[in-house]
Design a binder for these strands. Structure first.
Lengths: 254, 254
DNA sequence: ATAAAAATAACCAAATATAATCAAAACTAT
DNA sequence: ATAGTTTTGATTATATTTGGTTATTTTTAT
């Protein structure tokens, strides 16, 4: 990747996410943090972003409203942290699933360019990964859900049948200790259920606000989840209860 | 190779790939890196690309096209006109196929929001149609081709098997009266062949520059095409020969 | 408030890329 | 043909980029 390309990528990422840490950019671009810092200095000189300790923030004062992205500003910080923790579980040559959640999209955007096969039903994830040449992206087809820009329906589920992955990173709307994992949309829930069935290991990405919540449809038991990644605002009572239930839990720290 | 030819080749390569290293260009063009550097300096002077340490990046990020799409930015006007003509063939409640071509993408962007089912292997087409609420979009899944932002491969072909449409709008790289319709990329060709097999009616979108051209793989006979839509710069000799061969031809006027 | 951790700036050195220069080769125009 | 121009490749000196190291600053936690 040429210098200019890296600079453009940095600006794009900073603008998309609002902010980026030096460490994230370093991983994504496959250069040392020193290089990223120098880049940020120059980009700040040029007025393309604003430097801050640990990273940089967007200076695009009023980015034109992205019609695709339902503005999920809520829990953005937590989701980014969870995404950052989650990518630590990814190793070269893994075959993984990313679902159509905001957290999975963050994961895609900060995923380093290493040899990897990613199976997804999310248009945004696919789009995001298209620039990383070492990553092979496979999309389920299916009926497009315009709101979430993802593919659902029988054909999406059918196409998943043809694959097997070693890790699946899934999100949800609710985690209830007694009732299990739930989703507000039935179509999405069915796809997630299928995803779980073709994965060796299921990692659930759920920020603290999801605990205790019961959404419309259940798509998995807690026992089907191998590990939950959440943020540090989680109620300690859940931590303890999950421990008692022998569910592995990782807390993504700030 | 003439100097100008080399210059054009350099610009084309840079635009296709987004960027090129001096070393790559040197190898491809069979000249020393010094020569390439001088070329790049002059091309940057002329504003045809942007220099960067180690290579050059494309500057062709003008509106309708972004650096992903695989075909040349040329014939844009013709393609828009062909797209405009093509949508006249679409009626409410049609089930149609749009392939991963620039022309199909133009079609998607000017398609009115009427009840319609669109089956496509193009990410851009899907994205474009996501804002039109009356249009149901179904995507083939498959391996994502990053360059063309489309889905190809066995799974893409397999998923097409589950559907049947009444009209397919396809593009190509070459239309040869004797040898048939060809494509430069075999994966895309196989998908198109399958698309033809599940469509009642096949409409070929081909600007005048495609006639007489033979690209790498053939994916259809002329007899399998129900109608060709082209632009008014088409050589009259082809018009006459197609008439003799009883192939229906529509010329999109300015 | 103070200590520990994290991030940064300021170096340096190695690798790479570039610019400048010159001579040979190829092309142009008389 | 021949003189003049342009292009090219080779060579050398110069620039830039990058990663590593260390000291310093800033932030965070106690």
């Amino acid at each position: 990747m040429l210098v200019i390309e890296r600079h453009e990528m940095i600006v794009r990422l900073v603008n998309e996410k609002g902010s980026m840490r030096v460490s994230e950019l370093s991983e994504i671009c496959n250069v040392t943090e020193e290089t990223i810092r120098r880049d940020l200095d120059r980009l700040e000189q040029a007025g393309r972003l604003l430097r801050s300790h640990g990273g940089a923030v967007s200076v695009a004062e009023q980015q034109p409203e992205d019609p695709y992205m339902e503005r999920e500003i809520t829990r953005m910080e937590e989701k980014k942290r969870i995404a950052q923790e989650a990518i630590k579980y990814i190793e070269p040559r893994d075959r993984i699933i990313l679902d159509a959640s905001t957290t999975a999209w963050y994961m895609a955007s900060i995923l380093p360019d290493i040899p990897l096969t990613v199976l997804t039903n999310s248009l945004k994830v696919a789009m995001e990964l298209s620039t990383k040449e070492k990553i092979e992206v496979i999309s389920t087809g299916g009926i497009m859900s315009a709101r979430s820009l993802s593919f659902v329906g029988p054909s999406a589920e059918r196409s998943l049948d043809a694959y097997h992955v070693n890790k699946a990173f899934l999100s949800c709307k609710g985690v209830h200790l007694g009732r299990g994992i739930s989703e507000s949309n039935e179509m999405q829930a069915l796809v997630k259920r299928k995803m779980i069935s073709i994965a060796d290991r299921v990692l659930l990405l759920a920020d603290h606000s999801k605990f205790g919540v019961q959404a419309f449809t259940y798509f998995a038991e807690l026992s089907q989840i191998d590990e939950i990644i959440t943020d540090d605002k989680i109620d300690p009572q859940y931590v303890q209860q999950l421990e008692e239930m022998a569910v592995k839990l990782t807390v993504a720290l700030a």
